[in-house]
Amino acid sequence: MTASAASGESAWHQAGYRDAMAGKAVRDNDTLTEWYGTPHVDREDYLSGYTAVQADLCRAATLRAWGEKGRNFPASCDGIANAEQLRQQWQTGMDRASR
């Protein structure tokens, strides 16, 4: 992977960002190596992109909206400190959508 000139962020940062935004769990280095076809993984940059999304995505109002749209609870929010409360907010959204 190489750095992206368009955004100024590395491709690894962007990969972490995309994974978290898609609601995926953090991928391990072996999976990233296989997925992107390169033996070198910039783990720190990948996690930087991933956590950047968590700061925006893993909020009560955002997850209620995800639930209201019928979207699955994002695995990217499972590992944070208040994940259980966020899951409850997501469920509130799901409940509203099913009425």
Rank of each mutant, 00 (worst) to 15 (best):
R18Y: 11
A5G: 12
E44K: 14
L86C: 02
A97H: 03
G70V: 01
T51V: 05
V26A: 11
K69E: 08
Y46M: 05
R99H: 05
N72H: 05
D45Q: 14
T31A: 13
Q14K: 14
Q91T: 04
P39G: 04
A5D: 12
S7R: 13
A15W: 11
R96D: 04
L86N: 01
A5I: 15
K24I: 03
D19H: 13
D42S: 13
E44T: 09
Y17L: 15
P74A: 02
I80N: 00
L86D: 01
R64I: 09
W66D: 08
V53R: 07
A60Y: 07
T31F: 08
H13I: 11
G37V: 08
R43I: 06
G49H: 07
R96V: 04
T2W: 11
W66G: 02
S76C: 05
A11N: 13
D95S: 06
M21D: 15
C77W: 02
A20I: 07
A60H: 05
H40Y: 12
A52W: 09
A52N: 07
N72R: 07
G70S: 02
G37T: 03
D42P: 11
R59S: 07
T33M: 13
D30P: 05
A6S: 15
Q88R: 06
Y17W: 15
L32N: 09
P74D: 00
D78M: 03
Y46C: 03
H40K: 12
T51F: 06
G16H: 11
G23E: 07
T38G: 10
G16L: 08
M94F: 01
S48Y: 08
E68I: 00
S76I: 01
M21N: 15
Q89I: 00
E68L: 02
R59C: 04
A22L: 14
D45V: 03
A11I: 11
H13L: 14
A22C: 10
A11Q: 12
V53G: 07
R43K: 14
Q54C: 09
C58T: 02
N29W: 05
A25K: 12
G93W: 02
G23D: 08
G8M: 15
